[in-house]
Structure formats: structure tokens, C-alpha cells
Design a protein around this nucleic acid. Sequence first.
DNA 1: TATGAATGAGTCTTCATTCAT
DNA 2: TATGAATGAAGACTCATTCAT
Lengths: 190, 190, 190, 190
Amino acid sequence: MDKRERIIKAAIEVFRKQGIEKTKISDIVKAAGIAQGTFYLYFPSKLSLMPAIAEVMVAKTLEIVKDRVSDDAPFPLRMEQLVDAIFEVNEEYHEIQALIYSGLASTEHLKNWETVYAPFYKWVSDGLQQAIDEGVIRNSVNPDRTARLVIGLVESAAEQIYLYDTDKEDEAVIQKNEVKNFLKNALAID
Amino acid sequence: MDKRERIIKAAIEVFRKQGIEKTKISDIVKAAGIAQGTFYLYFPSKLSLMPAIAEVMVAKTLEIVKDRVSDDAPFPLRMEQLVDAIFEVNEEYHEIQALIYSGLASTEHLKNWETVYAPFYKWVSDGLQQAIDEGVIRNSVNPDRTARLVIGLVESAAEQIYLYDTDKEDEAVIQKNEVKNFLKNALAID
Amino acid sequence: MDKRERIIKAAIEVFRKQGIEKTKISDIVKAAGIAQGTFYLYFPSKLSLMPAIAEVMVAKTLEIVKDRVSDDAPFPLRMEQLVDAIFEVNEEYHEIQALIYSGLASTEHLKNWETVYAPFYKWVSDGLQQAIDEGVIRNSVNPDRTARLVIGLVESAAEQIYLYDTDKEDEAVIQKNEVKNFLKNALAID
Amino acid sequence: MDKRERIIKAAIEVFRKQGIEKTKISDIVKAAGIAQGTFYLYFPSKLSLMPAIAEVMVAKTLEIVKDRVSDDAPFPLRMEQLVDAIFEVNEEYHEIQALIYSGLASTEHLKNWETVYAPFYKWVSDGLQQAIDEGVIRNSVNPDRTARLVIGLVESAAEQIYLYDTDKEDEAVIQKNEVKNFLKNALAID
DNA sequence: TATGAATGAGTCTTCATTCAT
DNA sequence: TATGAATGAAGACTCATTCAT
């Protein structure tokens, strides 16, 4: 398999288990089954992995979202499915979300944020545009901006729940409902 | 000035400039004008500073929010003022927001997140409760949860704008309006 | 062009720019436009290049010296021309002189010093012998030894001038005159 | 004892034994009896030691020279004593001479050459001036420049002998005589 | 409390060398 | 011969932490 990909996969696994700070390059290469020096052929440092990891995670998120949201369902249902999907990803990968955030936050890689999230934003934006065209949400909504708001809202809501490892299914259900109502009203036709 | 406070102030400055990862204890003490060993009389590690920093930042945020939001204005205006205030803080301290997040995210100090943000959540929650009592927003709103959603939404919206240093006042205005509309609808009585 | 030669040429260039210590094999092969592994088909190590480089440099020096010194001029003039020639080479290649020295100095390749410089020593020695025969310099001069002294003297004088990149033509002229006088007297018939 | 000095002393010893290339920082600190990290409090790298070592060596040389050359001897004798002294130092420290040369040759530290050699140049120059004043050498001699020539000549002659470890006392005697004659004539009143 | 030179374990990083193609 | 991706041993270097003052 492609070495670069193996490094990214291994890094995600190791970061999840022990966090970024405590992870040594040697842990990553061990997990990837490659030599120490090989790492540096693909990445100049541990933090420079973050954009690549973020990309993978966003791709994975988008994949799950696309799978969970039915193309032909009515908009309100699709929105609920979107919320569920984001919560689902966040439950599975909450440590990664946090580390992507903190990893990208490290100044130099910040600039990649937009690029990395772009496909996800685009997908939600398209959905909103379609809903506007169908007249099922208020047409004062700017699809691009609102896509960002929706994703930001739902991810932050999910993070607040899954920040702590403790598995809180009940909590999650309540929070999801609150978000769904919040969203439904936010977009609703007045 | 109190040494502990000097350390926190210095740490905030240095973290802003070079990020958490790249900041050494020696950078902090240099900026604080104290001796290397003195640091350890107040904090056991670099990351243990994060809760203290977060506390300072939340206090500062709350202070500005309280100042900008008029007690006696009608609710929709107060909400707009809240959005403006959060954007204002974020513009000034956007790197800090990111680093608090990533700093607290580092496993051990995660638990403090709730505690640190509590007063801010409380203040917004109280405002929502009052609005419900006055019947100016839908009473299906759960004030505590929604306070978190509102803050999460607005902060993520602000971060998206101020992530990049480039000063984009126009951008900010548009984004703020979008958020205000989004929020107004989200909370509105159906 | 012959690969071996390309390696030597590239090495000279790179060594000049960044010094021996800081030059990696990879820098040399990059400059030579060949593959990493190819280097080892021609040289077992970085330092093993030094004798080859030294040989090239001495050949170049001898070539210039032979060109600048007129066969049929009287001895004092020929000596002046020799000084001029050595300074000329040194001006162009002063970093190389230094690095040959330090490169050869690295233990293993030291033994080649004599071999490499031999033709140059021989040429000067022959010139001195001829001058003795002609009775134009004192006959207490030992041609072989004195050849070494003369070359050592003039090269060290030139190095002192050209050590610093700054182009100091005036300085060089003065220094050359001093050396010429020094030499003239050193060899003169008492 | 002062740590910096201990590092320099230890480095000289270790460099002599195993050469610059083969010497690890860890060898130096072991010999100096200090911790690995302590080295970096005083020097940023192995090569940055070279100017300091050179300084020590020149000081040592000057010390020996001053000791061997009698203040009140006639000039020709003093000059012979100078030659003997330089050969003596070179015999004892020929590896160091070579490594100073190659160490200083490493571009960045080159600029210190003049500074480091200054006291030695000065001392010889003063001696020449005095000899001119006394009328025992030709007054067309420029003391400063000639000091450099003399030192360059004698050191290069000595290096040619002691470059190879093999102890060649006979060789040295002959070479010294040749140099002495060469010098005597070079400076002699015409 | 405060200092800051010293420590050295822990990592990162380099780069000469190999070898399957 | 030639290639260049991969290797991993070897060392450089960092920096949190200590402790004598």
C-alpha cells in the first residue's frame, strides 16, 4: 500500500489512543510498519500530518453523511439525518475532531482549514439551495454562509456531548433533539 | 504584580505569537521576567496553565458581553448585541480561543471545560429563561441547552471569519447578519 | 560527459558554496544530475573525492603557472610571474585551496598530499635548479626544499589576502610586491 | 573550573585523538566531565568551538615563542629561535594546527582568523620593527606584512614535515636550516 | 519565595548506504 | 551501469525539571 497513506492511517490510530502530545514519530512509524527515516520522506514533522488527517476525516464524515441522508426524503427529515450523521461521526471520532482542531490551530496549518472543509460545506450548501428552490425553507437564507453555520452549530453541539469519553446515549438524544428543533426553526419559512 | 498573574499574562502573549506546541517554559518565564525555577512554584506544567488562561478569557468575554448588552433592551436587540460582543472578543483574541480549545482538549484538563465556561453559559441561559417568561421566544426552548447552542454557533461563526488574520470588516458584518437572522428564526415563536 | 568527472566538478562547486562538512552526498549528486546510488559506483565516500579534486586543482594551477611564466625570461621576472600566477589561481579558487587542505588533512587521505603536489613542486624545483646553474641565485639553495618553501610562502600570502571574499585588488598588489621582494632577497646571491 | 574552559580543553584532547569528524559531542562532554546539555549552554555546535580552540592554540604558541626567543640576543639568533619555536609547537600540536585550519576554513568562522592570529602577528611585527631600527635588516621591509609572510612561511614549512605522524627529527633539522637560511637572506641588508 | 546553571533522558532528525528494479 | 525509494544506526539537540544558593 501507498506509504503516505499508511502513515496517515497509522497516525490517526495512534493519536486516538495516546493523544498528539504523547505520540512520538517512532510510535507512528512502528504502527505504519515503516522505517523511521521513511516518515520524513513524506512529512517534515508530526504536526504537518494534521492537514492530511483532517482531509481524511472530512472525507470520512462526508461519506457517512451522504450515506445516512436519503436523497429523496423531505427536507426536514434530511436535516435530522444530517444531525444524526454528524453526531455519529463525532461519537466515533471525537478525539480526532479535537486533535484536528488543535492540530490545524497550530498557526502554520490554519490556512488549510477552508480547503479541507470545502467539500463538506459545498454539499450542505447545495442541499440548502435545493430546499430554497423547493420553497421549503425561507429564501432569505444564504446557502453558503448558512452551510457553515449549520455545520458549526451541529459539530459544536456534538463536541459538547462527546468531549468526555463517557458514553452518554441519553444525553446525546436530548441534545440532538434540541439541535434539530433549533435548526428547524432557524431555517423555517416565517 | 503578582507572579502567578504575570505568568498567565506572559503565557497568553507567547502562546498567541507562537502557538502552544512551540512554546517552551523558558519562553514564558522570559516574557514574564522571572526565573526558570519560579514557574514551578505556581504551575506544575505548561498545559496546567490552560484552565487559568481559559478562566481569564471567559471572564474577559463575559465582562465585554455584559457591557455591550443593554439590560433593558428588547430581547431581539439584546441577542444582536450578544452576537456583536462575541464577534468583538473573537476578533481581538481569535488565536486564544483556538488555543484554549486545543489546550483544554489535551486530555487531562478537559474536565475543566464545563467549569470554566459555566458562568458564560449561565448568563446566556438566564437571558433565554427571561425571554421565555416574557413570551418573546418559543417556550419549547430549553434555556441551558440552547445557551450552549447559541454560544457554540456564534463562536464558530466568528472563528470562521477571524481564523485568518486578514482584517475583513465587511465579511464580518455580513456573517454577523446571517447569524443574527439564523438565531432570530431559531428562537422565534412559531 | 563522463560521470566520474561530473561528480568531481559538481563536488567542487558544492564544496565551494557550502563547505565540506555541510555538504551531503545528496547535494553532490543533485548538482551532478545523477542518482544517489550512482555516486558509489565511483567513490566510496565524500572524503575520497578530495584527492581527485586536489589533482584537478593542482593540474589547473600548474597549467596557469606554465602559461604565465615565460620560458625565456630572466629568472627574477619568472619568479615575479610565478607569484602573480599563484595569486591569480588563489583569487579564483581560494575556497578550494582551503578545502583541499582541510579535506586532505582528514587523516586517511593525507598520504596523497605529496603525490598530488609533486608535479608542482617538481616544476618549481627544476626552475630553481636552472637558476642555480645559471648562477643567478645563491647556490646554497636546495632546489627541492626551497621549491616547497616558495610555494608555501606564496600560497599562504595569497590566502591571507583572499580569505575574505571582498575583492581587494590594491591589497593584493601590495602583498605581491612584498612577497616578490621577500623572495628575491631570500634567493639572491649574497 | 570554568565550564567553558573545560569544554575547550577537553575538545582539544579529543580532537587530537580521533579527529574532528569522528568526534561526537558526547565524547567531548564525557572528557570534560559535564552533562550533554551543558555543552549547548556554551557552544551551539561542534564547529563553533574552533575559534575558541584556535585562540587557545595561538596563545600557547605565543607563550612558547616568547619563552624560546631571548629578548637580548642578536636578531639573527632570535630569528633562528623563532623558527625552532614554531617547529616545536607544530611538532607537538600538528593535528591541532591542521584542524584549526580546516575548522576555521568552514566558512562562517573564517572571519575570526585575523582576530585570532593578531597577537602573534603583532609580536613578530614588533620584533622586525626593532631590527629595522637597529639597522640589522633591510629597511625596505614592511614589518606588518613581513610578519605575516614569516609566520606563513615557517608554519607551512613545519606542516610539511610534521603532516605525517612519523617522527623525523633529521628531516626537521634540515628543513629548519633551509628555512633559516631562506629567512636570513630574505631579510638581510643588501 | 526566588534564582538560573546544570542536568540527561527522551526524541527528533539526518544521511550514508543498500538493493530491487 | 544506473536508479532512487527505503532503511535505520548514529548523533544532535531540546527542554522540562531539579537543587544548591
